[in-house]
């Protein structure tokens, strides 16, 4: 199985690359949209601001859409999850809009960003969360959170000032607000689940 990591010029992709190598997924960093067609799975990372990510990701939009419609499993991580939505309070740029809803700032009642390990509350059984329970911790770093219009897309939530989306699954589209590549063995389990989905 080969997995593309979309390298669109934001942040640090070495951690996700190392983690995918560890689960024997044969990752490749992809800098050109036309290369996307030859992979069995696509990871969309993301750090920094929503607007900066969208400006740099926009040239991949058509190729990603094609992969999605062709049934290729896609995994968005952190801001890579947020860009799937229509818009964000953080930046004026439009998101990909694949999921109805928006991205809003964390509440004032908590330290922002949320930085550290938090648990999930699993809402429905999905393959991407196989082997994961409500007692497991995952590493989060974010200042904004996703609010889908249709709550049924949410696979798991986390509690930080309020209950918010932590993982989503819609057909072959998956997304997590936390960093599975930095979440120890349980994070690697999620990447393995994604790898398994990419092989089918």
């Amino acid at each position: 199985m080969t997995i593309a990591v979309v390298d669109y010029g934001v942040g640090n992709l070495f951690s996700i690359y190392n983690a995918l190598e560890r689960i024997e997924a044969r990752p490749e960093l992809i800098t050109e949209p036309e290369e996307l067609t030859r992979f069995e799975g696509v990871v969309v990372p993301g750090v920094g601001s929503f607007g900066r990510c969208m400006r740099r990701l926009s040239r991949f939009e058509a190729a990603l859409r094609e992969a999605l419609e062709g049934g290729t499993p896609i995994l968005g991580i952190c801001v890579g999850m947020q860009v799937l939505f229509e818009r964000s309070e953080e930046s004026p740029e439009e998101g990909l809009g694949w999921i109805d809803g928006e991205v809003v700032r964390l509440p004032d009642s908590v330290l922002v960003p949320q930085m550290g390990w938090n648990t999930l509350s699993i809402k429905r059984e999905v393959e991407i969360l196989d082997g994961i329970s409500d007692d497991d911790f995952f590493y989060f770093v974010h200042s904004y959170h996703c609010v889908p219009r249709d709550g049924r897309v949410v696979a798991a939530t986390t509690d930080y000032g309020l209950e918010m989306a932590a993982a989503m699954a819609v057909d072959n589209l998956f997304a997590v607000q936390f960093h599975p590549e930095k979440s120890g063995e349980k994070g690697l389990s999620i990447l393995k689940n994604f790898g398994r989905l990419a092989r089918c």
Binding site: N12, F14, S15, N18, R22, Y139, E181, K182, G187
Partner: peptide
Amino acid sequence: AKNVFVPLAVGGGIRAVEDVRAVFQAGA
């Protein structure tokens, strides 16, 4: 970074953004 899948922080002698890039490219 090949064996450790939690955040890695590196310090000492970081003076400019180029120093940051170098340690990030190694996996920090």
